[in-house]
Write a protein that binds this DNA or RNA. Sequence first.
DNA 1: ATTATAAAGGAAAGCGCTTTCGATAGGAGT
DNA 2: ACTCCTATCGAAAGCGCTTTCCTTTATAAT
Lengths: 333, 333
Amino acid sequence: MVTIYDIAKRSGYSITTVSKVLNNYKNVSEKAIKAVQEAIDELGYTPNSSARTLATNKSWMIGVVFAEHLGVGIAHPFFSEVIEGFKKHVELYNYDLLFVSRHMGLQEETYKHLKHRGVDGVVVVQSFGEDLIGGENSPIPAVYIDMPLKQPGSVYSDNRHGSSLAVNYLTELGHERIAHIMGDQTNFAGEERAIGFLKAMEKKGLVVPEHYLVNGGFFSYEGGREAMIRLLALSERPTAVVVAGDIMALGAIKVIKEAGLRVPEDISIVGFDDIALAKHVDPPLTTIRQDKDLIGRQAAIILLNKINGDQDSSSRVVPVQLIKRGSCQLIRG
Amino acid sequence: MVTIYDIAKRSGYSITTVSKVLNNYKNVSEKAIKAVQEAIDELGYTPNSSARTLATNKSWMIGVVFAEHLGVGIAHPFFSEVIEGFKKHVELYNYDLLFVSRHMGLQEETYKHLKHRGVDGVVVVQSFGEDLIGGENSPIPAVYIDMPLKQPGSVYSDNRHGSSLAVNYLTELGHERIAHIMGDQTNFAGEERAIGFLKAMEKKGLVVPEHYLVNGGFFSYEGGREAMIRLLALSERPTAVVVAGDIMALGAIKVIKEAGLRVPEDISIVGFDDIALAKHVDPPLTTIRQDKDLIGRQAAIILLNKINGDQDSSSRVVPVQLIKRGSCQLIRG
DNA sequence: ATTATAAAGGAAAGCGCTTTCGATAGGAGT
DNA sequence: ACTCCTATCGAAAGCGCTTTCCTTTATAAT
């Protein structure tokens, strides 16, 4: 391995000077800079980040802790896009992303591992879990996706507004019997979307029968199926249902079709997320779009602020948007 | 920060001994082990990986370089699953994954960066690009996904066989006018699938008119659309088409529907990949499944072997499988 | 000519850890 | 009683780098 010492010898300067040109110090002569540069090129030197980190206590790495319910990890249709947006932004500032191995949900262990790695900050992407890493006992800057914190530093979509967008649209189309397939109520997004739904319905003066509120669990296709099955079994079926997640919505649509009914002719569906394939399914899914890229970017901004000790690291709620496609229509009759 | 020195002082032993218990050396007394452990617990010590890496020249990190054409990065429907499979395996051996920032396709820069980070190995996931990192000029162990190398150390699906599975199935259903929407021919998978298609057709004694071979580009939805449009414009349309990627297949199906035709009644479609949502679209997509998890795992095994200097680090081609769903049917008449 | 000042460079300590090698002490063997 | 192992431990060097602080030299000011 070629080190700073080799460069020093070759260039005729001391390692101090070499280090200085490497770090753009001002008090080095043009001559020295040139000599060192040449030596570096000739010898093919690459600085060693471990040594640098050890000396500076700065790793230029950001830890990613990933915890989701679908069990697909990085392949998660929503979170992966958020992470990509996050990555694109922090890359601009020369940070690399470290995906640490999961310690079976043992937050304690995960935190230790992150500390071990000396990451400069961590982004926590999760659909559940405790706020341990971001806690006061933790000196390591953190930002949370889809999870509110006591302290500032989390970003999530305007879930309540999203739900109200959905019910308002549906009522415009003339629907009144509107059901909601909820995400699990221990989940922040699931809870907020349900609250938003209920509030919007109330505002419209619409009553939602107890049976119209059904738990679809953790946003899975199967969860959507089961929830919809229960809805179809009702004596008075809803004419529309807002589903707390696109994947669940797909499951629900499938069940409807299997029952010999049609979407949107018989039942209108609006999803939530706008995953990549929402536009490609049949019918194209009307849904509430979360701006995954922006969520990631905002998270990056917050975290970078925290890392740099800058002032503004407040939480952000990012706007959602109704995407009208083919899964809703005017109620007939 | 609490260091090994603090533990030494607290426990009454030297840092050497502390280090030894940390690393499970045999020549330490039970008494010492216990004393050190207690000190660690009391002080809440976490080893510093940079220091360790510096001393041992082993980082326990594996670099991930990601280059794909869709521009979605980590959110890529196929590669993300491969990476997840890879990750799950290397985690077992205590490796973390480092996603290095892209240097605009500058392999030279990427390589330098990886060297800078001191990763123990690298997994290259890409749909294009040169074999630079794995080259001889590189001392860093590498494994490539979806890309053949001169040297051993890459893993990819049995693309040719996949295509032949598709045409054989289609011929069984009575189809003879079978077209192929190809992936870009500069892409390994695209090329292999086309070759497999052609060979299988020849074997069946079926002729494929020049116009039945259309380039869908880099596996995008739009590429699939455009390719299918050209196919539909033909005077003698195909009754079936094997598409080199699921996303492209979805684009193709969309076009067919827009033209007032139906899948599979008028045209049968078989895709390639079996992405997560293939089963959820309408009609459910018949496709060639790539075993993404296994691909990732095999890549992990190869890389770990290389890292450990073990013998077997040969390339692997992983089997594919025909998944029959709803997008194909017997030809009518 | 003399002094003050700025510019350029280097010695050395230190970041937290591993590892070699030598020292010490207790026990076994004769 | 003496030598030889074996078990246990620690001093010290070294991994590659940054950074403080001091020295030297050149330049400007008087």
